[in-house]
Design a binder for these strands. Structure first.
Lengths: 228, 228
DNA sequence: GTCTATATGGGGATAGAC
DNA sequence: GTCTATCCCCATATAGAC
């Protein structure tokens, strides 16, 4: 069964009430899907969280799958384009820390989105077949190419670009996806801005140094490394 | 509702048939839970995969939750003890590569276990409240202490130990949990032993160098770093 | 111990009044 | 557009024959 990821687009333009209610439902659905997975979340619990009768959910989104598609679609829009900003012309000593910081902000600001996406992947991405196409493969290749050229130019050490990208993804998303374990390990109930800053700095230091990039001070623009 | 994680222990000693069937069911359940989550997996599909009638599952494991607890319990046993082998007396240049390699082997050999655990954490670990206790916190602190002392002795750079551990966890588990996305990105149907080796080497290089550890050649024992 | 048949509840979806 | 009442299916769990 194929999922229309863009199911929520193409809806007819709407009034204020509709827009408000749809947003209310989407937020509630995001919370429930993140907490219980697709099957585990119920239209009932979503309706309750949104403060609306169950039938209204079906009025705005025809089916549970449509609602899930809308949530997932919003997440993909959010995801797109962060890695796209990296270019071979950039100085990795400048843009890699920025990329790590951006991904960490995502983990802090949109943990639910990150978790829903993660659960979808963990389950084998049954609803993302049309997302993981040859286009995705081509896009990814264009991204690894940036790192490959950096290595070629001696701006970073010769590391496998694909695995470096996976490292960037995994290490940052971990703070959204495994927040519960992290809090348990640290014995905390919250993981605040200061914690996120420490995490960001630690990751940045290790990954940049691990790639042979001399770190520049924040705010300072300096060439990191000129020779191989 | 509290879950008895040790539900499968304390069962009466059993004959060959029971043991064989229980193992059959556990394997089938692991596959289904990993693929569809707790709620998404059905006793029917588990029974079918195990090649047994549904009622038999209930005969061996009273309820679906009991079955899930047994699966989860086996996973925790598997997880325990890998990080325990690290000691402050060790040379991180030797034992960190070994730890990374072990975790990567886990991702390769037990991807289902990794995914079930990940889904449980993603969902807020509702069934692991009795696992993430103060004991867990104390255990984690004892592990960070190892890295802290390494830094104190100048064996590694001064990095936040907790976040270093999270990095080790996230980067290695990623290859089990996000296998589906990785294959899509690489345009492959399989991620073979050679791929795992490349991934392991890349991670090892970046993380060790990122911590200021000079990597020793495989099989060679050499002091990595003597001074601060 | 094994398995068929069934009870029971819950969840997605809809009809139709307002 | 909104919401109550209801339908129908499916999943867990069990009863009880073998």
């Amino acid at each position: 069964m194929l999922l229309r990821i863009d199911a929520h687009r193409g809806r007819k333009a709407v009034g204020r009430i509709r827009q408000k209610n749809e947003q209310l439902i989407l937020s509630a659905a995001e919370e429930e899907f993140a907490r219980h997975g697709y099957k585990g979340a119920t239209m009932n619990s979503i309706a309750q969280r949104a403060g609306l009768p169950k039938a209204n959910i079906h009025y705005y989104f025809n089916s549970k799958l449509d609602l899930y598609a809308a949530v997932l679609s919003g997440i993909l829009e959010l995801w797109d384009g962060t890695l796209n900003e990296l270019s071979a012309d950039d100085d990795p000593a400048k843009v890699l820390p920025a990329y790590i910081a951006t991904k960490m902000r995502f983990s802090r600001d949109f943990p639910l989105a990150s978790r829903i996406f993660a659960i979808e992947i963990l389950n084998g991405a049954p609803n993302l077949v049309e997302y993981f196409t040859d286009d995705y493969r081509a896009w990814f290749r264009s991204r690894t190419e940036v790192f490959r050229r950096w290595a070629e130019m001696g701006k970073i050490d010769a590391v496998d670009p694909a695995h470096l990208i996976f490292l960037l993804w995994s290490s940052t998303q971990h703070y959204a996806d495994f927040a519960c374990q992290i809090k348990a390990a640290l014995g905390r109930n919250t993981f605040d801005d200061h914690d996120f800053q420490t995490a960001t700095e630690t990751l940045t230091k290790i990954i940049l140094q691990g790639c042979g990039i001399r770190q520049v001070q924040t705010g300072t623009v300096r060439n990191a490394r000129l020779g191989g």
